[in-house]
Amino acid sequence: MWKTDNPAYQSIEIGGAQHHGNPQLAFAAKAAQDAGQKPVLKMKRRNVQKAAVETSASTDDEPSVEAVAAATFELIERPHPMIMGIVLDLQRATPDQDGGISLEGIRIHERSRTRIIALLHNLAHALELRSITICHGKSGLRAEMPPDAVRFEILEGRKLEKHEPTPSELRKEMDFQRRRDFAIRRGQWLPPEHFFSEYDYHYSGRLSFEVHNWADGARKKWSDGKRQTLEGVLESIVDGILYHLHFGKARREKREEDERRWQHMARRRELQKQRNDREQRRIRFLNELATYQQEAANLRVTIASASTVSASAEPEYRRMVSWAEDRLAYLDAQNAVGPLTANLKLQNLFPESDELFDPEGDPN
């Protein structure tokens, strides 16, 4: 059986339910299908002439995407507006000594400039059909389906080899060495110079497309090979980008849901703490009320007993009884319904509408 790039389809269970090893991958696959896209499957091998791409036919019961025009290596006279900034940067880029052109997210040889523009042009058209845009900035190339985005890059293979000096470079080096030897004989010194690099980068012309996003088990890289080109698997690349966007969306929504749950639990715990604090204040209030009432009862007994001897008592004793009567009057005032109610409202101990009420009860 053909190997697929979607891990959900890499195993077949006979006599059992379908199993997804990674729940988030399964969620992303379902989201991509619900959005009207196919899973990320490896494209069938096709004979690609000058990198032509044709969308595979859809069956009656499979959602389909509008066909994308054939992608070629030929010069694109009117690039897609989505990539105009990238095209201008590519055209203005000055090749280095090895002919390489480097932008954020792109590293190719100048010979591949026309091809990369054509590839990006057709990629933009295919992504547009799926409501995906291409952006280019300091973070490189990005495919966006706001608020979600994935970063990708297109690189041309290269290898580092020992530089073989040209006859012109050798002549320059020999001329400089003669001048340097002559200067040394005259007691002068010339600083050394280099007329060619020790190593060169040799570009292979083979491009690779890689999505920089974590999605364990999902395909991230496509490359030119013996039997395919990037243009020949353009639809697979686009479906892969869509898959990664849905995977990123699933992760983002999971993070947001976790954050909402955390905030909700934090709020409930804060309410619980405030309720516990209020319970302690209620207890203190009632204890103080009981203390006042007990003190008032004791004072009444004391004053009643003292009044029988106050007429013959010393002035200090009568002044004590007078102070006890004033204290009793104060306590009676504090224990009256009016002042008690005002104090309860001030401390908000028993509100009619309880803002600390948690309909879910106390959190565990």
Rank of each mutant, 00 (worst) to 15 (best):
H202E: 06
R185I: 04
H202D: 01
E198S: 11
M174W: 02
Y201A: 08
D175P: 00
F176D: 02
A183M: 05
H194R: 14
A183D: 05
E169Q: 13
D181G: 00
D200S: 08
Y199N: 11
Q177T: 03
R185Y: 07
A183N: 06
E173P: 00
E193S: 05
E193T: 10
E198R: 15
P191H: 06
P192R: 07
Y201D: 01
M174V: 00
F182E: 14
E198Q: 11
H202F: 15
Y203K: 06
M174Q: 07
Y199T: 11
S197P: 14
L190E: 07
Q188S: 08
Q188F: 04
S204I: 13
E198P: 06
F195R: 02
P192A: 13
R178G: 00
D200C: 12
P191I: 12
R180I: 10
S197H: 04
Q188G: 13
E193V: 14
M174P: 00
I184C: 01
Y201P: 01
L170Y: 01
A183Q: 02
R180V: 07
E198G: 03
S197Q: 11
L190S: 05
R185H: 03
I184F: 07
L190M: 10
Q177L: 13
K172R: 15
W189D: 12
D175N: 07
I184T: 02
Q188H: 03
E169C: 06
D181K: 08
F176M: 03
H194S: 14
Y201F: 14
Y199L: 12
F176Q: 00
Y203Q: 02
E198Y: 12
F182Q: 12
F196Y: 15
D200R: 15
P191Q: 05
W189A: 13
F182C: 00
Q177E: 15
P192H: 03
E193N: 03
Q177Y: 09
P191A: 09
R186D: 06
S204R: 04
R179M: 14
Y201I: 07
Y203G: 02
E193F: 02
E198D: 11
E198H: 14
P191Y: 03
F176H: 09
E169M: 05
G187D: 10
I184M: 11
R179Q: 08
H202R: 15
R186S: 12
Q188A: 13
P191M: 08
A183C: 12
D181H: 02
L190H: 03
Y201H: 11
D175Y: 03
L190T: 08
S197G: 05
